[in-house]
Design a binder for these strands. Structure first.
Length: 110
DNA sequence: GTGGTGACGACAC
DNA sequence: GGTGTCGCCACCA
């Protein structure tokens, strides 16, 4: 188990997010066993930009369902992608976040 | 080598 | 209940 694996695990989980679903940094961190390492998940996302295949990081939001990393993706890109999946996004905030929330810890049955 | 910061979250006061 | 602070681990200056 290396730190690189931690990042890879993050990418793996993010890629497993179904169409029209979103998750949070904390949920992924919790699934990986480091609930308080949500920041690392965010950093992993930063690195995800130069990962292949491209990681659907636009499906990863903060605990409030806000598009915290929109600026890193591109202005309006993240929101547009989510809307394309049928997710309503208003003011950089996902509506019915709970409904679209995909918890790897539950869905993948840790 | 040390200090500060970051796409966050939880707990303490 | 709102605000503040700490934790987590890696990267950059």
């Amino acid at each position: 188990m290396t730190k690189a694996d931690f990042f890879e695990q993050v990418y793996q989980v993010v890629r497993l997010i179904p169409f029209g679903r979103v998750t949070s940094y904390g949920a992924i961190a919790s699934y990986l066993g480091s609930a308080s390492s949500a920041r690392m998940v965010g950093w992993a996302m930063n690195n995800a930009h130069h990962q292949e295949p491209k990681v659907p990081a636009h499906r990863v939001l903060n605990r409030f369902g806000a598009l915290s990393g929109q600026a890193h993706f591109g202005p309006g890109v993240m929101q547009k992608l989510l809307e394309e999946e049928g997710i309503m996004v208003i003011d950089n905030q996902v509506q019915h976040f709970e409904k679209h929330f995909w918890d790897p810890r539950k869905e993948l049955e840790l």
